[in-house]
Design a protein around this nucleic acid. Sequence first.
RNA 1: GGGCCGCUAGCUCAAUUGGCAGAGCUGCGGACUUUUAAUCCGUAGGUUCAGGGUUCGAGUCCCUGGCGGCCCA
Length: 502
Amino acid sequence: MTEHEQQTTETGDDLPEQMKIRRAKRAELLESGKEPYPLGYRRTHTLAELRERFAELEPGESSGVTASTTGRVIFLREAGKLCFARLREGDGTEFQVMLSQGKLGKESLDEWKHLVDIGDHIGVTGEVVASRRGELSVMADEWAVTSKALRPLPVAHKPLAEETRVRQRYVDLIVRPEARDNARNRAAVIRSLRDQLHGQDFVEVETPMMQVQPGGATARPFVTHMNAYDMDLYLRIAPELYLKRCVVGGIDRVFEINRNFRNEGADSSHSPEFAMLEAYRTYGDYRTIAELTKSLVQGSAESVFGSTAVTLADGSAYDLGGEWAETTLFGSLSEALGEEVTVDTQLDTLRAYADKVDLDVDPLWGPGKLAEELFEHLVVDKLDAPTFVFDYPEETSPLTRGHRATPGLTEKWDLYARGFELATGYSELVDPVVQRERLEAQARLAAGGDDEAMRVDEDFLRAMEYGMPPLCGMGMGIDRLLMALTGLGIRETILFPLVKPE
RNA sequence: GGGCCGCUAGCUCAAUUGGCAGAGCUGCGGACUUUUAAUCCGUAGGUUCAGGGUUCGAGUCCCUGGCGGCCCA
């Protein structure tokens, strides 16, 4: 609420006319002995139950059954001594109410006309009938306001401005069926992921979101402060190091679905807080976990949308079915450049290529990082169909096992879909001595001013020294998965994305 | 971080060279016992994002700031 509104709420003097009128109607309800916000309403049927039970009623027919039901008024019509209202309940089911002077008497119908607005919640009791046009209706013997809305809803027939949708999601949810579908689809996808993982004996855990030391990814963390210990804490950037501790402890298949926080930019595909699935299982490699990832994505598409061929928000078709394309980082980059590039290609050579394709180069980047940047610059946009990109340089993958065949590479893949990164997976590094070397190298980068570099997590290394079994793991952005399945922007897949204050 | 565009009534949007700030829907009053974006009559509603400047006169031009969108990095 703005300062301006706060002032005027008390006096009511300066409010827009329509809000003043609704406040006056609330007062009138109270004056006439009616409660504008009663404890409830004695309901015998939900709107959905009425729809189902009386589906067979013919136009003009009366059921002889009296029902009490409730909903938000989304449409009002007066036709003299007969009024109509359309109610809607939470799942989107709508049902008509008819109010006639014959049933209610003049006084009650006049009060209805005068005091009830679109947006109000009401309860109504009467016979279930079908109108002459065949519309199922409750013919009211009695009605009551159950919650008076003090603000008018936006006009139903004009799309709400994008910013209003995001800032006032509650309004978006009221007026736009797609907004309600999005929220329910997201819940269904997450539930499907959980069900599939539980079905394969994965154990769901919750690991710390406030950490003494951030780790598990290269990203800038948010910092907060704990008063009791007078120490800084970090919001986690990834759950990886804790999930691996679980594996050391004997949870052979483990996953977590929860929020990560990265103190970086916010745009149409990045949110500073984002939901992520991470899953680890022993005695598998990056092929094993790629297969699991594919089955999870295809399984949630099947269970939520009925098919691996989904329809995106713009109406286009997107096929996630069957086997997915595979390439390698250096293979696809070589193809895009028209020059052979490998993990052994020298930094100077890569810099020359970067110059040729107008990519600005950070002088701190090594050859591995630069190769990845070139790949993102030249290849990523073109990866529309789901594609696994295998074998990343060791330089940028400090938690990943070295490649079994090619020195300098690691057994890592990224999964791309519709031009963005959807998931990543690894044959995990389980050698504590090599892990220490890698983390110490990262720590040197951090000391040199790289605020995304990892730190040495001694407790994590101690856990590894107790013996971490052969292991593969994956991470997948839940928001990204929803984007891939629906074609929505990230601000539509998250109910309340971070926005600057008005 | 850079460039471009936008911010006007409850909502969605107009407003010519700088010359009385408008429409549709919504609201309010009235008519109508089968409406469902009804129809008809009447009517109200504005800190034009904020602050400053130029001007006889600023929604419009200039400056600063806020919020947002798109493109680029």
